[in-house]
Design a protein around this nucleic acid. Structure first.
Lengths: 229, 229
DNA sequence: AATATAGTGTGTAATTTTTACACTAAGTAA
DNA sequence: TTACTTAGTGTAAAAATTACACACTATATT
């Protein structure tokens, strides 16, 4: 029923669960709040949707403002709207997730005014979160667990060139279980979306592994066909 | 960023894609609008979220108001928020779907004021829809196509007691393709969530089929394990 | 130069799952 | 009794999944 537009007080926000991978651990970006309510608590970064933005644009802007990153795969996954989720009024929030490779080159642009600091914290040891952010995070993790089985999102967590072992490591962390090396390789290669490079891994004190790259062109051709883990 | 609650004009609505099955066709419930904009167009039923409702509660209320139905499996699936999706202002809408068995017993309670009429229309022959409702519907259909492969939602479209042929018919309509009878039966029975009844189908002019019922208890036990079509 | 170390990279057999496919049985209607 | 219509069933071939172990290579250490 959209033909009547009453004058309402309501706030619509976006919260982001930014999953980061540094080669070792899965982490999420949290901010330490500097204002009431939940002053000094850790919270998911989020912001209010502007009047002239689409939701995806808004999510991209928010991600950019908080991290300086652009061009990251992001997707909305759930709306949270319990009337009491925010102590100061009705705030409906739409959750997005993003997957980001951490470390090395680009560091995060320091984050704004409303937070004391921002930090990447390992998901294995998260603090208590403000508002219903634990719920939002839980649902986000659940979502990427499902999605990594069917869509090529694991590559977003890795550098452009990566080894099969690194890729397997990402799958294991997200799915929360060990995978068999030979079977993993067989399957992931059989999808035909990896390009084997001539290059080898550098800087390791053991036999260097072959580097691969995710081949977007090949993946585009497969579209419609489902990958399945 | 939820600590500041500015005074904003924004409207948050819910639109429902109600899929109905009458034993033959898949249909959705549409209303014919009686007011500008899009007067005389067909549109998805929807309404504005009340200030003290959770989103799910709101969706249930809206479904109830529009159809008189309660206790229906509903799920939110996507938020649509293009700034220009509504010609009169910013309206962000959250889409829900519901699956309903039509016909026989309970008829729809006539629907309110803002629509000339409401009607179940077969999805094979839909009219042009108001606003971005075609997009909302498309995404909804896509969603249940995915979901019917992994979750027992097909049963919501059928009466409590149903035949395997009817069940197969539902899968075929939703997935949009023919399935092999023997393989379908083998698989669906192997999930172990159907209870075979002593009863037979009635009122057909040919051999009557055995009736089955979806066994929620058995399904609950399987939880965690994934069904897969 | 020899050795220790640590991760890379590979094949196969057994099992399970999926697919393709056609006829008889049962009930109703004429 | 016959015609009609749908119910209900099995098997063999192909494909996918699983479980499983060792030799190779590069570097670091002595």
């Amino acid at each position: 029923m959209e033909q009547i537009l009453p004058h309402l007080d309501s706030v619509f926000s976006i919260d982001c669960v930014l999953f980061g991978f540094d080669g070792k651990e899965l982490k999420i970006l949290l901010i330490e709040r500097n204002e009431e309510p939940f002053k000094d608590w850790w919270a998911l970064p989020g912001n209010i949707v502007g009047p002239d933005e689409s939701l995806d644009q808004s999510a991209s802007r928010i991600l950019y403002e908080l991290t300086g990153l652009r061009g990251i795969y992001m997707e909305q996954y759930y709306a949270f709207g319990d009337p009491h989720r925010h102590p100061q009024g009705r705030v409906i929030t739409l959750a997005y997730y993003a997957l980001i490779r951490l470390g090395g080159d680009k560091e995060l642009r320091p984050v704004s005014n409303y937070a004391k600091r921002a930090n990447w914290l390992p998901i294995t040891d998260l603090p208590k979160l403000a508002f219903d952010h634990q719920k939002i995070y839980d649902k986000g993790l659940e979502k990427i667990k499902r999605r990594i089985k069917h869509q090529p999102i694991a590559f977003e967590l890795l550098p452009e060139k990566f080894t099969l072992t690194q890729l397997q490591h990402v799958y294991e962390l997200v799915l929360g279980k060990k995978l068999d090396k030979r079977n993993f390789r067989k399957k992931i290669v059989s999808f035909g979306v990896l390009k084997e490079l001539d290059e080898k891994q550098k800087g390791v004190s053991y036999r260097a592994a072959t580097l691969y790259r995710f081949d977007k062109r090949k993946y585009a051709k497969l579209f419609g066909k489902e990958i399945s883990f």
